[in-house]
Design a protein around this nucleic acid. Structure first.
Lengths: 329, 329
DNA sequence: TTCCAAAGTGTAAGCGGTTTCATTATATGT
DNA sequence: ACATATAATGAAACCGCTTACACTTTGGAA
């Protein structure tokens, strides 16, 4: 069995209270005593037991990253990327990071209570019930890649509209006037932002968008390819297409190739997300880069602030995007 | 504050022992009593506190998935995919899943002890010290995508050699005799398996492999493209190239396109991993599919068996691969 | 009805830390 | 050297649950 604080107390000849202080509040114990304690601990291979500590302190330092999404969760590069940055930040702290999906909000909420989770980063389109349940349990909640009306919680999102603007103005700079969009049916928040931003930016620049220049598709390559074919296989086709994400953009590239179009001469394509596939496609895909690392770090900062009950934790953080220009445009 | 077992005990008029049993061993308490307990619990919004339970039971049900890798960890599609399947399995159990990277083995080991982790799934090339330290702390350890000589622990790997054989024999079926390989410098275990398997299978079929038909590269597209260009930009070039993974294969496709080769007529390409990019490339990439889901599930099964101290837990599980034929070959 | 085994329930002692409060040692000023 | 303020330490209660053990019911069998 592992050594306990009593073993260390006995071997070092001080009380358990002092041992405890030596580990948790070293400045409260005299240098010499502290050394005795640490020596004994070393000998006994003692490490404080986090469970017992959580029990006594009435706090667990446990936080969770919950991805609210049906199919791919951590497999989704975007959420994985945020996860990676949260993880790295957690690694330098005393928190413990649980990761899970949240299909069933009620189960998730009771699990959170059972497992004594103190803070949650909710990714994707979380159900309102989940948030209110968690908040009523005094769990700190931060939303990422989503915004929820009627709730008082910090949200971290990327600047979707700014990103769309960057993409489109880049195409306009290149001389394109007839720009179309292929839009995937993914998370309601994202779809809304990117779609509306497209219309907005086009209007801002005095360009009209015909209904036939916007195609909806399922969020997979085949469906995107099909949609792009419909868009492009006609005489008055656009000279540039904006894909609502990289997978869709990949579909557009495929369609273009099937129609024997040269890129970027005959058609410019821009994607969104700047995922790893961009560099592997031919031509390499221009895409709007989302700063996932900043998003993850911000989430952790906000969560910590919330858990520490700091006042004035910002309610909305918008992380700027950056256009990554490659050879497809 | 959350309700405790005492509150439930008081409200339902039974002892805390009975309340405890009603939740943990319902069959031990009479139907009527149980109902009283659950009703009281319902009223009080009581959920058992996992921390206190862990304390009393002397077990935490905490397990961890540690990815031993420098750069991309959970961002690596392979590890993410395994993670996803572990996660889904854990979700249907009472375990808590911690996820982390393991850069520094000593810190990782002491963290595991502090946080009272009872089982660890180690992905990637874990350091031997980490494994022995964990084992000496009585932590159950399962290795995935790696094998370690001199240790007594379950390993779960995909059938790398079988996969290479599938890929090469597929190419041979298509009539290819001059097959080359571009090999990335990634994890020592993988690189060894795939590289040696290549030589082995070629020899089995009486095909000679010239040193110039094997190119090493860094594990990124650019480097792979460069390597492939060297391989292909010569008169006696191979008619088929096997990429040690999909990223490398993508580089080969790029190189082929730059050389204006038609695929699969002038050159057949096969990758390994069957990652999501395969379907987005043009032509779509034939690749060896790794059954990550099975790997993750097997890990969990083995870990559970180990933690339950079952006898005869298998030491090596090899998960078969499956060739996914697409238009690049 | 009586007796006894089996089933159900209660009492209380932990699990390994933290922390309050009381006590003792040390430092400071005169 | 003494009084006093302050720092360091210790004793013991407590965090919320489990479980060994003792005790009480229950339900048959005799």
């Amino acid at each position: 069995m592992n050594a306990t604080i009593y073993d260390v107390s006995r071997l070092s000849g001080v009380s358990t209270a002092t041992v405890s202080r030596a580990f948790s509040n070293p400045e409260q114990v005299r240098e010499a005593t502290r050394r005795k304690v640490f020596e004994a601990a070393e000998v006994l291979h003692y490490y404080p037991n986090a469970i017992a500590r959580a029990m006594a302190r009435q706090r667990t330092d446990k936080i969770a990253y919950l991805i609210c999404k049906k199919d791919a969760t951590i497999l989704d590069e975007f959420y994985a990327s945020i996860c990676e940055s949260i993880m790295r930040k957690v690694n330098r702290s005393d928190y413990q990071l649980l990761i899970s999906t949240a299909d069933d909000w009620h189960q998730t909420a009771s699990t959170a209570q059972t497992k004594q989770i103190e803070g949650v980063i909710l990714g994707g389109n979380a159900q309102a019930e989940l948030v209110s349940e968690l908040q009523s349990q005094n769990v700190a909640v931060v939303l990422v890649n989503n915004r929820m009306a009627g709730f008082d919680l910090p949200c971290v999102v990327s600047d979707e509209r700014g990103g769309v603007r960057q993409a489109l103005e880049h195409l306009m700079d290149r001389g394109h006037r007839h720009i179309a969009m292929v839009c995937g049916r993914f998370s309601p928040y994202i779809i809304g932002e990117r779609y509306h931003a497209f219309l907005e930016v086009m209007e801002d620049h005095g360009l009209t968008v015909d209904a036939s220049d916007i195609k909806m598709c399922d969020p997979d390559v085949e469906s995107a390819t099909q949609a792009a074919l419909e868009l492009l296989d006609r005489p008055d086709r656009p000279t540039a297409v904006f894909g609502a994400n990289d997978v869709i953009a990949a579909g557009i590239l495929k369609a273009a190739r099937r129609l024997r179009m040269r890129l970027p001469e005959d058609l410019a394509v821009v994607g969104f997300d700047d995922s790893t596939i961009c560099g592997m496609l031919e031509p390499e895909l221009t895409s709007v880069h989302i700063n996932c690392q900043a998003m993850g770090e911000t989430c952790m900062d906000l969560l910590k602030a919330l858990m520490d009950r700091e006042p004035d934790v910002p309610r909305l953080t918008v992380i700027p995007t950056e256009l990554q220009v490659r050879s497809s445009s």
